[in-house]
Nucleic acid binder design. Structure first.
Length: 350
DNA sequence: AAACCGGGGCA
DNA sequence: TGCCCAGGTTT
């Protein structure tokens, strides 16, 4: 009787899922590609990541060239991908590897964990996939598979130690990188959150929940808190030439990205007069609200009211005029793309 | 231990 | 529209 790992590795080789960061067989994995893809894939789907990965590797073919880029260039290439602290940490880590490691990726947990943006998951993934070391790679896919195979009676994140123990019992003694990737592929394509395709699953013989057709009951879920709503105003300022006043965010949320100036975002909606009093230009006569934009973050829903003035010769320190055709050269979060699109139509070159 | 941090895909 | 997701850092 075949083992779990034999079955899933056979399936993995047969499926031959082609992803741009995956090395083709005789060629060794490129640690730079593995690292870059793993950072991009945090909280982000494969379909979204592919285009960003291709663009990054074309712009910056190796870790040294990425280290030599400016943070603004990196943020611009990252815009739309979300979780922008990943881009800051990516850039910092590239510079550390270029200067402290002579451009060579470290391959031990001790050194990998010292790099910004690399925690236990990413360290394990890099060691397995880039260096074929034995490590226990546990992401959301693997958690879901383990919960179903073993009918785990608790939400997976509540006991990571137990997860490592049961994963160990399924793991092979070689092909560590392929096993890690095969588990994540299985979770992404067969052992999916909804409607898992158990009838064609290569390891359904090993799955205790499938034996009782209880796979839909696993993993056990935690209760989630409801997302609060927040409200703000954005101030659309144009001069005679049609240029737009923009500035760089200093707040921790969306730090380093550009914005159309806005109030803070509060639980209570602003009255228009209060919002204006808190704008950089409280003395000017603003239009009524000319548009509204909704954006959902992980932890709150944001509703923005847009108001507008036409003004030239502003003399503020925290921003600058940007011609409409040059907006594409700056890194805006998707939230601000919605505001710009509302005013100007589709922003080109997004 | 819990809160914080974005966005796109999909039913 | 609501729910899902290839985590790490900060508090």
């Amino acid at each position: 009787m075949s083992s779990f790992s034999t079955k899933i590795l056979d399936w993995y080789h047969h499926a031959q899922r082609k992803l741009p960061w995956r090395a083709k067989d005789p060629i060794k994995p490129n640690p730079y590609h593995v690292w870059l893809s793993e950072i991009m894939l945090q909280q982000t789907t494969v379909a979204t990541v592919i285009a960003y990965f291709l663009n990054f590797t074309e712009k910056w073919p190796d870790v040294n060239s990425l280290a030599n880029a400016s943070i603004d260039e990196v943020l611009h290439a990252w815009q739309g991908l979300g979780y922008y602290s990943r881009a800051h940490n990516l850039h910092k880590t590239a510079q550390i590897i270029a200067t402290d490691y002579n451009g060579i990726f470290p391959n031990t947990e001790e050194f990998l964990l010292q790099l910004p943006g690399i925690g236990p998951y990413t360290s394990a993934a890099i060691r397995a996939i880039a260096f074929n070391q034995k490590s226990l790679v546990i992401d959301g896919n693997v958690e879901r598979i383990l919960a179903r195979v073993f009918r785990l009676p608790f939400p997976p994140k509540d006991d990571m130690k137990q997860l490592r123990i049961v994963l160990e019992t399924l793991s092979p003694n070689d092909k560590f990188g392929e096993f890690a990737q095969s588990m994540m592929d299985l979770g992404a394509t067969i052992c999916t959150p909804k409607n898992p395709k158990c009838d064609i699953c290569p390891v359904n013989n090993f799955c205790e929940s499938y034996k009782n057709l209880t796979q839909h009951l696993y993993p056990i879920e935690k209760l989630k808190a409801k997302r609060p709503q927040k409200f703000g105003f954005v101030f659309w300022v144009e001069n005679d030439k049609g240029d737009i006043w923009i500035r760089k965010r200093e707040n921790r949320l969306l730090k380093g990205l550009m914005e159309i100036p806005s109030t803070s975002w509060e639980i209570e909606n602003w009255k228009k007069e209060e919002a204006i009093a808190n704008s950089p230009w409280p003395e000017h006569s603003w239009t009524n609200v000319i548009g509204q934009v909704k954006h959902v973050f992980t932890h709150f829903e944001l509703y923005l009211n847009i108001i507008k003035i036409k003004k030239s010769g502003l003399d503020l320190e925290d921003g600058f005029w940007c011609a409409q055709k040059d907006l594409k050269d700056h890194a805006f979060p998707t939230l601000m793309h919605k505001v710009i699109n509302h005013q100007l139509g589709t922003l080109k070159n997004k």
